[in-house]
Amino acid sequence: MASQGTKRSYEQMETDGERQNATEIRASVGKMIDGIGRFYIQMCTELKLSDYEGRLIQNSLTIERMVLSAFDERRNKYLEEHPSAGKDPKKTGGPIYKRVDRKWMRELVLYDKEEIRRIWRQANNGDDATAGLTHMMIWHSNLNDTTYQRTRALVRTGMDPRMCSLMQGSTLPRRSGAAGAAVKGVGTMVMELIRMIKRGINDRNFWRGENGRKTRSAYERMCNILKGKFQTAAQRAMMDQVRESRNPGNAEIEDLIFLARSALILRGSVAHKSCLPACVYGPAVASGYDFEKEGYSLVGIDPFKLLQNSQVYSLIRPNENPAHKSQLVWMACNSAAFEDLRVLSFIRGTKVSPRGKLSTRGVQIASNENMDAMESSTLELRSRYWAIRTRSGGNTNQQRASAGQISVQPAFSVQRNLPFDKPTIMAAFTGNTEGRTSDMRAEIIRMMEGAKPEEMSFQGRGVFELSDERAANPIVPSFDMSNEGSYFFGDNAEEYDN
């Protein structure tokens, strides 16, 4: 993207840094990872977990959730003011799984939030270390993106479920800051804005008074975040219109849905970061690795190297396929839920299948599930090659597409044709070009129609051997075009429920 120079890199967003050079960025990201790792080690000690239990991804998720809940100030305040039966607002906890007599047992633990905050700050040299908290939120978000298709949420806001490739980060909490905003897809931002506008339509006082002023500035800020994701002048001009509207209503909703559809071809720039579970960072720190000293990046080879040398386990339900569970977590670790499966298959070195073909449910185990038949197995999170994460949407291309997802959002900077089903997408653009945004709409449609099938995206960008740390010898991959490109292809993934 041309304006790259004016933006802070995501590592800076990730670490609240002012302008830093590459070495400083690597050190501050490393410091953040160190903090998460030290916190995780301490929690495993508190909970008396064995090494194996500490490497269980379900335990990692519970521990991450506990610290996120302990620092969720708004919710904590709300819980104190609106006490609900049987919930102690000062405590947080969740299921911890232990191996007892050759069987997995679930144990519900409860801790004072104050105590968890103390352990977290102690692991982070006394700081609140917001960057580390956001990092864990993005890992949870990436896992949700890989596990669930947001059909219901899309339909509720009037969008087409086939636009799911635009929904990265749709389950990120509001408090995820600049680093969170960077990884949100165009569809996620559109959905947040539509929800806001709908509230304004239904509630006369939404934009009024002292609160209304705050609401208005939040609305304009979200519009600017979305505008910054678009790469064409016409899309940005249309966002200006939406932002400046005196009284946002149905016309703005129409414009936003139009823009979301246009992003299936004229893709937005959305950041991709490899955020790993805390149970990967903990053992690495415990083994003596100093992330701050060595430096770390979320968008280069580092996460690949770390996963190459990590042992992570997962509980497996009786009829689940461990290899499929591994694929789910591998995609989440690489922030690749909406990437082209052919690119992923090449990088991973084994075939990556669409969601609907995987015999696996989510990673988390519900409290009512029976533990008797639970097994555990090693997650295979290694890769054959590594590639640089991208934040450009890439230019655009036609490809055989599917009944489910009709476009992709690249996660890796790797040369390819970008699949999208042009006739299906263009069919949504018939007729409606009147109104105050008509010239911009016409211009956007013209650009979409001009998108050429034979153009290559990320020209000359390749993948790298894991021994090639400096990215000196790019390998331009070859793809098996007979395979499906979309992950949520004609899909039956479970729906995400809060």
Rank of each mutant, 00 (worst) to 15 (best):
M239Q: 05
S274R: 00
A237Y: 00
G30R: 05
M222H: 06
D340S: 15
T360R: 05
G212A: 12
E294Y: 06
Q4K: 05
R102C: 11
R221G: 05
E18S: 08
S367K: 09
E73Q: 10
F458C: 01
R216V: 04
E465F: 01
V270C: 09
L61T: 13
R267E: 08
S376G: 15
V109W: 02
M13W: 07
T215V: 11
E339C: 03
S9W: 07
V280A: 07
E254H: 08
Q12N: 14
A129Y: 01
T23Y: 08
P283M: 09
P354C: 13
D51G: 14
D421W: 00
M189P: 05
V67C: 10
D128Q: 05
G35Q: 02
V352N: 05
N417W: 15
I63K: 08
V67D: 09
Y313A: 13
N21A: 03
V299S: 07
L226A: 07
A129K: 15
M43Y: 08
Q398D: 01
I225A: 02
M239L: 07
D51F: 00
L56K: 02
P161Y: 00
P419M: 13
D203T: 01
L61Q: 10
R199H: 11
L256H: 03
N473Y: 00
K184Q: 06
N397Q: 05
K98M: 11
P318W: 08
W139G: 11
N224G: 02
T171N: 09
S176K: 03
A373M: 14
Q327F: 08
G158F: 05
T215S: 15
K198R: 04
P477W: 02
L266W: 11
N319C: 09
V29Q: 04
T134D: 10
M105P: 10
Q327K: 12
M481Y: 03
D51C: 08
L133E: 04
T390H: 09
K273S: 08
D372H: 07
C333M: 15
K357H: 08
R55P: 12
T151K: 14
L133F: 05
N250M: 13
G54Q: 12
I138F: 07
G349Y: 06
N321A: 09
S141N: 06
G37K: 05
A22M: 00
R55G: 01
R246M: 06
F420S: 15
S141Y: 08
L259C: 09
L49R: 11
R216K: 15
Q415W: 09
D145R: 07
A493D: 00
R199I: 06
